[in-house]
């Protein structure tokens, strides 16, 4: 069951990434760089910071809305991968019992504040990563990485991995289905069976690689996976990176919520 859920989740992200929206049309490099800037800006906040992180939600919200990505789907995936961060962060309230006032008269332990800060950072960084792949095709990201200077051999690995990911997941899923159909309770799903499944899959993979190699040779492969340049950075890409960068810098160095709050209180009083 879990296998199939994970498989369909990847499939859905993958299909989303081939949509055609303003966000999808941006150059992959621009999106990769903007997302990295975003992540660095978010995690650079100190451990007790929460409020100043809020303006950063604008980035994932905009990308998600303009890229026409279902918000619920992304939110569910964020929750699904949260256990480790929660597990580690939950100890903060235990080990950091100092009391602070988060509003006049409201006292909580500092550990809860830093824990909440971890959760907010987690939601921001993970949703940004998911939105990157939901709005940029994997081959697009790979081509972007190549242009950003990663070794050709590594990038060709990523591309092969992507190409055969769905083929092999389906193959593995068929084997798992066959195993589970004839397993009862814990019997059948043990380590020994698993080892045989992985061993068989490995050998099939090697045989497949041999056939692929044959097909590559038949079309003149001589050790280099060639590619043809297709993306060119347009002014809109540069504007996007620049705007995103400025926004992140603004939110990082200026306490926006404080200022908005003061403004509102000034107006009210």
């Amino acid at each position: 069951m879990r296998f199939e859920a994970a498989y369909s989740g990847i499939g859905r992200l993958d299909r989303l990434s081939y949509r055609d929206t303003v966000v999808h049309r941006l150059d992959p490099r621009a999106k990769v760089i903007a997302t990295l800037l975003f992540v660095v800006a978010v995690v650079s906040f100190p451990r007790y910071e929460i409020l100043s992180l809020f303006p950063f939600f604008l980035f994932p919200v905009l990308i998600g809305a303009l890229g026409d990505i279902p918000a619920g789907f992304i939110a569910k995936k964020v929750v699904a991968v949260s256990p480790f961060a929660v597990f580690v962060g939950i100890f903060n309230p235990l080990f950091d019992p100092g009391v602070v006032a988060i509003a006049p008269g409201v006292l909580v332990s500092a550990g809860w504040v830093s824990f909440a800060s971890i959760l907010v950072k987690f939601a921001l960084t993970i949703s940004a990563a998911l939105l990157l792949i939901a709005t940029t095709s994997f081959p697009g990201i790979c081509r972007g990485l190549r242009r950003l200077g990663l070794p050709a051999l590594f990038v060709s690995q990523l591309l092969f991995l992507y190409r055969y990911l769905f083929v092999l997941m389906e193959e593995a899923m068929r084997v798992v289905r066959a195993r589970d159909m004839r397993s009862f309770g814990k019997r059948g799903a043990g380590t020994l069976v698993f080892v045989r499944i992985v061993g068989t899959l490995f050998l099939r993979t090697v045989e497949r690689a041999e056939r692929i190699y044959g097909a590559m040779l038949a079309r003149g492969f001589r050790g280099e996976v060639p590619s043809i340049r297709r993306e060119t950075l347009r002014p809109s890409d540069a504007v996007f990176v620049l705007a995103a960068g400025c926004f992140f810098a603004l939110c990082r160095f200026v306490p926006v919520p404080q200022m908005v709050g003061r403004l509102v209180r000034g107006l009210a009083g």
Binding site: R2, F3, A6, Y7, L153, S156, Q157, L158, L159, F160, L161, Y162, R163, Y164, L165, V167, L168, M169, E171, A172, V175, V176, K186, A189, G190, T191, V193, F194, I197, V198, L201, F202, T205, V206, R208, A209, E210, I212, Y213, M216, F221, R222, G223, V225
Partner: peptide, 28 residues
């Protein structure tokens, strides 16, 4: 010192590891 055939092999092995990590098994 790359043997050409390693290029597709490595790539497909990546997909293999990815898929194998999705298979759960019971620890005795």
């Amino acid at each position: 010192r790359l043997d050409d055939r390693t290029i597709p092999l490595m790539g497909v092995l990546g997909a293999f590891i990815f898929a194998s990590q999705m298979i759960n098994f019971t620890i005795p």
